[in-house]
Design a protein around this nucleic acid. Structure first.
Lengths: 243, 243
DNA sequence: GCCCGGTTCCAACAAAAGTTAAGGACGGAG
DNA sequence: CTCCGTCCTTAACTTTTGTTGGAACCGGGC
């Protein structure tokens, strides 16, 4: 795979949230990245591990999660191409959660050393990455609200819309449908409910003609109902450099 | 209030998670801070506002929260002296949540301009603050897990232990008891349950002889039961510079 | 002292979500 | 093509949590 394809989604995403100078783009394009293929459902980094590199998602979907003593698992975020989900490992050396592929994925690994050197050379790039981790943090805040306060059908719709708005930036929304490659079990883990209940909720929104979900794909049937149900306000994604 | 008292808790906290050089301490001690008194239950920054300064908690307790369209409120974190809960506003200019006092509080305000200048002058300090926002993020992740997966009594115990472990660092734990100045309504908002249910849960843990909670103070009755109930693993607090 | 507002506490009932169990659909391996 | 495992689907039942409404408590102000 050509080098610019590997970095394309990353640069595209950074541009959306930060104004970015051409020379900084060059710096990022010069970063050595080693690309590896991962099968579906494979751990990339595990809770408790010490990382020495960060993982850029070139293609495919990943999820971050934590598992508690009782064995229940909570999905913390869904991650899409162009993102570096474990950028935090640069300064938080021991992982406090898992990063796992949801689909077969192409992942690019960037060494901490090289990232740190880049930061020293270019404070602007460092700030851009910092901002990226802050947006990550904002998404966690909204996820807390989702799981803590919204009724289950709204939780589902909210996660779907968040994913859609992020996929839109990388040109991955196809009309009224987009990919969301999760099993109902995993949807339950994302929403803080059981798989059985996730199934009930999916059935309900389907019967109400709001969205269809099957084989890892969401199709919006009634955009207005969908938005109302989700109670979605995208400000927290901070998708504008001026804000 | 003397300047070193104002900064003491901040420096103390930074020392715990990052190794910090004496000259950096001097830089931080040279930061202009304007101190103001706030009454209890007063908004410090609101969702949607553009901030031009960050808020250091000198004394008192604060909480971060988001309110959804239905009016339900979710508390995202509790904040204690020495913390800068809105450090993220340096790069995420529009607030995506509220910061409110829980008690009468002494707050110190540091201008974004001065913080940015400090970052340019001392990348080490910048990294230290970055690390601080990353720990913040790690705490949100654990909060998601708490609200999403644990049974209500465990949620309560977990929030209590997290608060205690953080208070311990600033010398604010008194034997088997510590301050947690929340009403039952607010505890409900933190745990993602209603005030009525919060009351039921508090009653239950009290009857089981685990903890006592009244008038904003937690007293641990049975440390072992408390720990087991909370399912607490403090690694996510990253309270060690070497990790 | 006494009132007043905000808490705390509780009960009864309703709704949401968890548990268990089991049948059916679907896709890949042999 | 059939077998097998995973996922989806549903039902029946239990448990947890929300809702409503009201009583008791408590501290501060008059």
């Amino acid at each position: 795979m050509p080098s610019d394809t590997i970095r394309a989604a990353l640069i595209q995403r950074l541009r959306v949230s930060s104004a970015i100078a051409d020379e900084d783009v060059k710096e990022i394009e010069a970063l050595p990245i080693s690309v590896r293929q991962y099968p579906s459902e494979r751990a990339v980094v595990r809770d408790g591990e010490r990382a020495s590199e960060c993982c850029l998602i070139v293609d495919g979907f990943c999820a971050r999660s934590k598992t508690i003593a009782s064995g229940r698992r909570q999905i913390l975020s869904l991650q899409i191409p162009g993102e570096i989900p474990d950028l935090m490992s640069l300064f938080l050396h021991v992982m406090d959660h898992d990063l796992t592929t949801l689909t077969p994925a192409t992942l690019g690994f960037i060494s901490h050393d090289n990232l740190r050197k880049l930061h020293r050379r270019s404070p602007r790039v460092a700030e851009m990455f910092w901002r990226d981790t802050l947006i990550d943090s904002a998404m966690f805040r909204e996820w807390i609200v989702n799981v803590g306060q919204r009724p289950a059908p709204a939780r589902l719709a909210h996660v779907m819309i968040e994913l859609r708005e992020r996929l839109r930036l990388i040109g991955r929304v196809d009309g009224d449908s987009f990919e969301m490659p999760l099993t109902q079990e995993q949807i339950g883990e994302a929403l803080g409910i059981t798989a059985v209940h996730a199934n009930r909720v999916i059935k309900q929104v389907r019967q109400e003609g709001v969205v269809e979900f099957s084989r890892g794909r969401v199709t919006v049937l009634d955009e207005q109902k969908f938005q109302e149900l989700a109670d979605f306000d995208g400000r927290y994604l901070h998708q504008s450099p001026t804000l």
